[in-house]
Structure formats: C-alpha cells, structure tokens
Design a binder for these strands. Structure first.
Lengths: 130, 130
DNA sequence: TTTTTAACTTGCAAAATGCAAGCGAGAAGT
DNA sequence: ACTTCTCGCTTGCATTTTGCAAGTTAAAAA
C-alpha cells in the first residue's frame, strides 16, 4: 500500500486489512494454520496467486513473519506477529456478528474465542517450534 | 452478493462488509452522517458511483435503511438498522487496532467509542427526526 | 423563472481478483 | 541414482471491482 485515505484509524486499518482475504488468513492462523498449504486448503478456496501476494503484503505490513525461512528459495511456515495478533479482537467481533446476524454459520472452535493477542506477542522474534 | 465462500461466520461477514468502503460508511453513520452528501464529504473521498452502489448493497443486506423516502425518485436520509448497528463493536475494535498499531492516526470522538448497538436497535422501523 | 443544490447515473480507464497451468527444489519411493 | 511426488510458489489471461469525470433529474432557493 502506498498511502492512507485519511488519518482515521478505521479507514487506515481497512487500507491494510480491508479486503476479502487478509482477515480470513488471520483467522486461519489463529486456529492453527502455519504453512502455505494449510492456508490454501481452507474451505474458502483462495487462489494460489492471491494467497502468495497477500502473504507478501501482510509480511510487508508487519502482521505476519516467516518463522522458518527454509534453505533454498522456498519459504517455510508463517506466524502472526504481535501487530497481527492484535487483530484477534477484530476477527472475534466479526465472528460474533456473523454468528448472530447471518443464518446457518458455523460455530467457531472454543480456542478461537479464547485466543488472546498476548498469546502471540511473547513469541515475537522466536522461531516456531520444529 | 450471491453466495458465501463458506459457512464460516468471519468469511461470511467479510462477504458482506469486507471491502474498503462498507465499514467506513458505518463509521460515518455512527458519528452522525445521515445524508448522501454527508457520506460523500468524508475525508476519505469516496466516489459518488461507489457510494451509491454501496448504499444499495448495504440496504439490500439489511444493514441500513432509508429513513426518509422522499417524494420523486430521489432518496433521502439513511440510518443504521439493528443489524447494521450490531457492527459497531467491529468498527470500534478496528479503531482501537488502528490507533494502537498505525502511527499518527486521529483519536475518534468520545461518542464513537461510547456508541452501543442498542442505541440504534430501538429505533428500527421508526422514521428519523425531521 | 433562472440558478443552486442534493442525489444520484453513465461511460470508460485502471486495478484487484480469479482460474488454470507451469516451474524449481527438496523429499520420497524403488 | 534416478524417477516421481509434493510443496511453495510464479505466470498468463479473463472477469470483476474500483475509481475518475462528466452528465442528469427534481426540488429548493434566489
């Protein structure tokens, strides 16, 4: 992203994550997805080029990081940074809205609503467990 | 919108409001915007065709309603429905994230964080004050 | 009765999204 | 050790969404 539309925190937040995919990627990571293929195999069927580009953008924005930069050109697993994990309350509120206002939605797993940003913040700079 | 990507409440919520403009329109209405021109004159500079289309979509989705259907073909003022007002916690969390994670953002007015969905729910079906 | 203003619509260019196929490197099978 | 498989992407192209600029319609104001 190049510029913010305004200095409004809401509009600016949406300049970063206000597309159809970024927050579903965050959701997937909150419930345990770490690899490219984890994120691809989600029921929403994101296409591979979009996933790759979104991961790059989210990494550039500092919301995720590569926890295992593999040897060769191939990249490994992804994890939320503290800044990315700070979005957890946002996706939890979205989930509550969706559950309450849209018929026949799934109930997220318990660990989803239990997740807290601080669970991730402490790990920043660490490598994921091998 | 025609279909949901999945039955996930988050993905589905984003199928409805997961674009760059819907939630800034909700934000504007929470802080008092009611007319088309109020919504146009926001610092984010939404273009008029997008605003018109978004208002139609939000109305079709039941998030807003026209509180004063004027005579002639011209439509009047808009208001949040209970379903739309239920998004208030979502935009409040987005605002908190933006304030905390993006440098130099505005602090929203007090009434923004004070707003509660129930302030709007009771008015559903009413006409706005003239 | 001419001019403004408010609420849009229309036309077209640009950007984002989506589908399908391909590619390079390491792991796995034989 | 050599072929095959899988993973993590990239590339090409069609479709959809977004954005800018200008035009339209009806009511209100001058």
């Amino acid at each position: 992203m190049t510029q913010f539309r305004s200095a409004c925190p809401i509009a600016s937040a949406l300049d970063i994550v206000g597309d159809k995919w970024s927050l579903v990627i965050v959701r997937s990571m909150v419930v345990g997805a770490t690899s490219y293929s984890d994120l691809l195999s989600t029921p929403e069927k994101i296409s591979t080029n979009i996933l790759a580009e979104r991961l790059r953008r989210l990494e550039d924005a500092g919301l995720i990081r590569q926890s295992q930069p593999r040897q060769g050109s191939i990249r490994g697993a992804y994890a939320l940074t503290a800044k990315g994990a700070a979005l957890i309350p946002v996706v939890q509120e979205l989930a509550r809205w969706g559950e309450a206002q849209i018929p026949d939605r799934w109930t997220p797993p318990e660990r989803f609503y239990a997740a807290r940003p601080s669970d991730y913040a402490a790990r920043d700079g660490d490598r994921a467990a091998d």
